[in-house]
Nucleic acid binder design. Structure first.
Length: 817
DNA sequence: CTCTCCCT
């Protein structure tokens, strides 16, 4: 391959790549950083492709840089044969054959022209980063290739050794692997693991001092975030030798401060404390040593709350390798890892693909716009979050009841904004552009109170704001927001004259907050989640707010930015969402039925009044009360329990009767219990219930007859007295005066299997004398002894010698007889 | 013990 410029490790592979493209139309190219794939591959394909070549980069900076370097190789500047197009900026011309674009641009191109007319090849660079847009873009390209454009050439380039799954997804595309051009890096692990409780900054500071003493050259330390960087810097600075220059580096820093970290130190050693921004986005020259704390902070979208929150996690092996590689760009290097060799096996191989953890609202909108049902994703979007995203889009009016895209949804998809903000801009018009820009970008105020109108003021007149307020404006963020606001204003329809609060409420109908009772500034959000202000925040007394930025804590989110809003404004904005609802339910807290009408906005109750609920509704609420309190507390009188036990006994004996255990009764409660609950008001009423009759009536007539016959409630004594039978034990039993049983010569039995009744025979003073299940045998055996005792104790009572033939009696003998 | 990074 004959390309201008110095030879690169990728060069020998380029003929193979062209051959693969010629025969198969696609290829996967795997090459480590420094192999030269980004600048070489498009140039090599120039002249072998009919139409333009489009190359995707995950970052604007990288897209611009790649285009400029390639143009330079051709002796041109960007905008000639090589051009680029990123958000808000394009340098292309009619001459342009190679167009470097950021990943979102491709989606837009495909949505407006699925056949990609005029384009002959698409190259995905840095595909291993697995950005949401790259995954979507590849799925769309594969589908377009299958249906419309078999001739479209496709190259997927990846830095890591895990390209096989992509090649498989592409229908076993040829897989080419190149060597990189980097210097070896010596890896040093900890000898013993850091204690689980150890603080990261302490550990990193110690390891960094060790690295400084053992090596030469620039040192790059990887930490998870700004906070850790600041704390580590505070620990290190008093202990550093004079020739070491410490530089923090993270995304929120002003660009000029970032530049300081990126320029070589004039003398002495540079020590850069960086986030993962230095992993791929920014290259720092002169680094010979890497210290890796082994953690990464990532956004994780929680579909339940509809918010992203940050989690700090262990790095994956792929990230650790990428970090390590940063020490070998200029010379042999050294990498210190804040973990042991043994712990390495527990690290995941790769970080999760963005599609697995991100907010999928934008993706769901793109899918609806594309219209196909199942795209060939390398990792399909997880169904739960996708369904949540679709629900939000329906709320915003972007999807109809059948999840088809609406005209409004199409207009939303055309805007370079999150669907929430796109909806807001379309409904509110131009006036919403500054707010949309503020909400889309990083916060421009550092350490300021939550009130979003402060940001609007700072944006409108920074100088005056700075004069009136002490917290600083982040100048770089301000510039970005200003530019963005200008762009969005051009894309927006005519202004509708809404307040910023109204606009924000349009974007976040699920984050309207109503202050809870109490001193703490805690809020219930219309989406059902909880949120809380810093108690010192001036907005903390406001009754109604729109929370535009929350930290995503799943228990109770902290409100970072919000606007106050009036109830009147909400009524005007959401006439369809605010409605009266009748509510009759059991309150477990109050132990009573609550019946009221509520005016609600989602989970919020704006107003309420009493409601006289119909008996049917009250009965259902009462039933929930019974379920909450348990049947044992509600109406299971001794009579009801006895009935239950009688049925249970017969069922055990094999009788065909319904199950009336508590569990079964609750299960069937709607059938037998509901009509008896119409007058219930509270737990007292439930406790006063007697369900004996209801329970009995739950059996049909024939069943009742059988029950009474086989397991009667009472035993009738020879004196015609009805004694209740106790069915609560293992065997039904009664207690009866011994003398009342005189003359009984057959033992009474229960049930179809003729289970003998357990009889406790009592003395005249109601003391148990004998327990028997065989009365005739008792008369014949132990009665004689009992009689002897009893005669002594109760001489005035009859103790006949032959009880089988005596008359039953409860009386004493008359005096003198 | 105040937020990593990126994009239409």
């Amino acid at each position: 391959m004959d390309l201008p410029g110095p030879a690169l490790p990728i060069d020998p592979l380029l003929p193979d790549l062209l051959a693969a493209l010629k025969s198969r139309g696609q290829a996967v190219l795997q090459a480590p950083p420094g192999a030269g794939k980004t600048t070489r591959v498009p140039l090599a394909m120039l002249g072998h492709v009919e139409g333009r070549i489009v190359m995707l980069e995950p970052r604007r900076l990288a897209a611009r840089a790649a285009a400029e370097r390639m143009a330079e190789t051709l002796g041109e500047t960007a905008g000639g044969r090589v051009g680029y197009r990123v958000r808000g900026e394009a340098k292309t011309s009619r001459e342009t054959k190679i167009e470097v674009v950021t990943e979102g641009i491709l989606t837009r191109m495909m949505q407006s022209d699925p056949g990609l007319e005029g384009i002959g090849a698409v190259i995905f660079d840095e595909f291993h980063e697995r950005s949401l847009n790259a995954d979507l873009g590849l799925a769309l390209i594969l589908e377009a290739r299958a249906a419309l454009r078999e001739d479209l050439q496709l190259v997927v380039m990846s830095a890591t050794l895990d390209a096989a799954p992509v090649a498989a997804l592409m229908g076993d595309a040829p897989l080419l692997t190149a060597e990189g051009r980097a210097f070896p890096v010596d890896t040093r692990w900890l000898d013993t693991a850091l204690p689980a409780r150890a603080r990261l900054p302490e550990g990193v500071a110690e390891l960094t001092l060790k690295a400084l003493s053992e090596t030469e050259g620039g040192v790059l330390v990887f930490l998870p975030g700004e906070g850790e960087i600041r704390r580590t810097a505070a620990l290190l600075s008093p202990k550093l030798p004079d020739d070491v220059h410490l530089q923090p580096l993270f995304g929120a820093m002003a660009f000029k401060d970032q530049r300081a970290a990126l320029t070589p130190a004039p003398q002495g050693r540079k020590l850069v404390l960086a986030t993962s921004i230095a992993e791929t986005s920014l290259t720092i020259p002169d680094i010979r040593v890497v210290v890796d704390a082994g953690q990464a902070r990532r956004a994780r979208f929680d579909p339940n709350s509809g918010m992203s929150r940050l989690v700090t996690e262990r790095v994956s092996l792929a990230e650790a390798e990428q970090r390590r590689g940063r020490a070998g760009r200029v010379a042999y290097g050294t990498c210190y890892r804040l973990w042991t060799r043994g712990q390495e096996g527990a690290l995941p191989a790769f970080p999760p693909a963005e599609i697995e953890t991100a907010d999928l609202t934008g993706l769901a909108l793109e899918l609806a716009l594309w219209g196909a049902s199942a795209l060939p994703f390398l990792t399909p979007p997880p169904p739960g979050p996708l369904a949540e995203a679709q629900a939000l889009l329906r709320n915003l009016g972007a999807l109809d009841g059948q999840d088809r895209i609406t005209a409004h949804g199409k207009a939303m998809a055309a805007l370079p904004l999150h669907p929430r903000l796109a909806h807001m801009l379309l409904r509110a018009g131009q006036g919403a552009a500054p707010l949309a820009a503020l909400l889309a970008e990083r916060d421009i105020l550092q350490g300021a109170p939550a009130d979003l109108s402060l940001r609007l003021k700072a944006l409108a007149d920074p100088r005056r704001y700075q004069h009136d307020h002490s917290h600083p404006i982040r100048r770089d963020a301000l510039e970005r927001v200003k530019q963005e606001a200008k762009r969005l204003a051009r894309l927006a329809p005519g202004d509708q004259g809404l307040d910023p609060s109204d606009m924000a409420a349009l974007a976040y109908p699920d984050r309207i907050g109503l202050r809870r009772k109490g001193d703490a500034p805690r809020y219930l959000l219309s989406g059902g989640k909880g949120a809380v202000f810093d108690p010192a925040d001036p907005l903390a007394q406001t009754r109604l707010i729109v929370a535009t930025d929350l930290d995503g804590d799943p228990r109770e989110a902290r409100i970072r930015q919000a606007l106050p809003i009036s109830e009147a404004a909400l009524r005007a904005l959401f006439p369809d969402l605010i409605r009266w609802q009748d509510l009759c339910h059991w309150s477990e807290r109050d132990n009573r039925i609550l019946a009221k009408s509520q005016e609600t906005l989602g989970a919020l109750v704006l107003a309420e009044r009493n409601w006289s609920a119909p008996p049917e509704a009250r009965a259902r609420a009462a039933l929930d009360g019974i379920r909450a309190l348990g049947l044992a507390q509600c109406g299971m009188s001794p009579a009801a329990r006895r009935l239950q036990a009688r049925v249970a006994l017969l069922r055990e004996e094999g009788a065909d009767l319904p199950d009336v255990s508590d569990a079964a009764l609750l299960e069937r409660a709607e059938d037998w219990l509901l009509p008896h609950l119409t007058k219930i008001r509270n737990a007292e009423d439930l406790k006063a219930l007697d369900l004996h009759e209801a329970l009995r009536n739950s059996l049909d007539w024939e069943q009742q007859q059988r029950l009474d016959h086989l397991a009667p409630a009472h035993f009738t004594t020879p004196l015609d007295r009805r004694v209740p039978i106790d069915y609560s034990g293992g065997q039904p039993e009664i207690a009866v005066r011994l003398q009342e049983m005189f003359g009984v010569t057959e033992h009474p039995v229960i049930g179809p299997r003729r289970l003998p009744l357990k009889i406790t025979l009592l003395s005249p003073a109601q003391r148990p004398v004998q327990v028997t299940t065989d009365l005739p045998r008792f008369w014949d055996t132990s009665y004689a002894d009992v009689r002897k005792d009893m005669r002594g104790q109760y001489p005035r009572h009859p103790w006949p010698e032959n009880p089988r033939e005596a008359d039953p009696t409860l009386r004493a003998k008359r005096r003198g007889t």
